[in-house]
Amino acid sequence: MVLLAFVPAALSQSEWTPKKSNRLVNDYSGMLSQEQQNTLEQRLVAFNDSTSNQIVIVITPTLQGDASWAVATRIGQTWGVGQKDFNNGLVILIKSKTEEEPSGDVAIATGYGVEGALPDAFCKRIIDDYMVEPLGKGDYYTALTEALDIIEPVLRGEYSYADYKKSERTSALIGLLVVLGFVGVPAVIAYFYNKKHPNNKGNHGGNRNHTSGSYPWFMGSGSSGRSSGWGGGGFGGFGGGSFGGGGASGKF
């Protein structure tokens, strides 16, 4: 069966999104064993560390009445899956069958940056040809690993970790300029101000303390932000990627 949903632009605020977590594998239906979850999580963390592509898996017992693609896209957008500068995030959403909501749904949502590597028709084939059958049998793990076996190599070719590192250097340079702007300009003003008002000693001291206090703060926030994302081992956090509704969905 094919479902073509023409959904009018929603202004409603009742848009539901599963609770954000700090993991890449989120099984809210209990369809995967702890061991399977850990294996998938390690695989996706390693993929994130080596390519900066972020793939998130969410298994949910409900869609709160919304379409699977819409929920998957919102997860991508609101969790910020993928790196901000590349929008290289991907969300695989599976809605498990329950007594209250008997339909089984699966959706792949692509971030703006991976739409080229994974066009909608390609996502649809991955769902139809590799996921629907094992999902119908309740074998979620096989459905996910088969999908990842195709998706990961494709995304690896889209762009390299080197591009990410290059952009990181650029943003560090911009950060330095911002620091100079924020700290340098007030310092110059303070310098000339104090030259004109040599008797205003108290103010001088206050200014200097403020300036020296803010410098390490800028530096500190910049470096801690980077290291938390690339600390090796566990997943460091979502990168703020953006989603535009690309991808495909299906039923099982």
Partner: peptide
Amino acid sequence: RDLQAQLEGTENRITTERG
């Protein structure tokens, strides 16, 4: 089927971008 998937994805994009 590919064309249909593309059209469907395009409708989804329209909805998302309008939002």
